[in-house]
Amino acid sequence: MIKLTHLRPNGDSALSLVFSDGTTAHWSAADLIARDTVMTRPLADPAYFARAFIESGALAWPNGVELSADSLHQRLSASGALVRSAA
């Protein structure tokens, strides 16, 4: 199972992510924020967005929004956004 091992805010609504398989990606939360739901609305505030953290390998925010690392990894892989480190 893929887990997040490190994250770093990279702009107002993006994160640099490192996964347990050594892959990395720059992920934009623009589509998530655009949903404009009660849960995603706080993420539009850059200061709140930057409070992202890793909980049990998943991407999370203090209001309870949680995204599975597997799901993020699959989407980023399908879009060609994952970077695999040279062995």
Score class of each variant (00 low, 15 high):
15 L>W: 04
39 M>W: 09
64 G>C: 08
43 L>C: 04
27 W>Q: 05
41 R>Y: 09
49 F>M: 13
79 S>M: 08
75 R>I: 02
81 A>F: 00
9 P>W: 07
23 T>D: 13
13 S>F: 06
54 I>G: 13
51 R>T: 15
64 G>K: 06
54 I>D: 07
21 D>A: 03
75 R>L: 02
50 A>P: 03
14 A>E: 03
87 A>N: 13
63 N>F: 04
63 N>L: 07
3 K>G: 10
25 A>C: 08
35 R>M: 14
17 L>N: 05
13 S>I: 09
54 I>A: 13
86 A>K: 14
76 L>Y: 02
60 A>G: 03
57 G>A: 08
27 W>I: 00
46 P>H: 14
22 G>M: 06
26 H>V: 06
54 I>F: 11
21 D>M: 11
30 A>I: 14
30 A>H: 15
72 L>Q: 02
12 D>N: 14
78 A>Q: 07
57 G>Y: 08
44 A>W: 06
67 L>K: 00
11 G>W: 04
44 A>G: 15
43 L>Y: 06
68 S>T: 03
29 A>C: 07
48 Y>L: 12
68 S>W: 01
61 W>N: 05
36 D>H: 15
78 A>P: 02
45 D>P: 05
20 S>V: 01
73 H>A: 05
39 M>R: 10
56 S>D: 14
85 S>T: 11
33 I>R: 07
50 A>Q: 02
71 S>D: 04
2 I>R: 09
66 E>I: 14
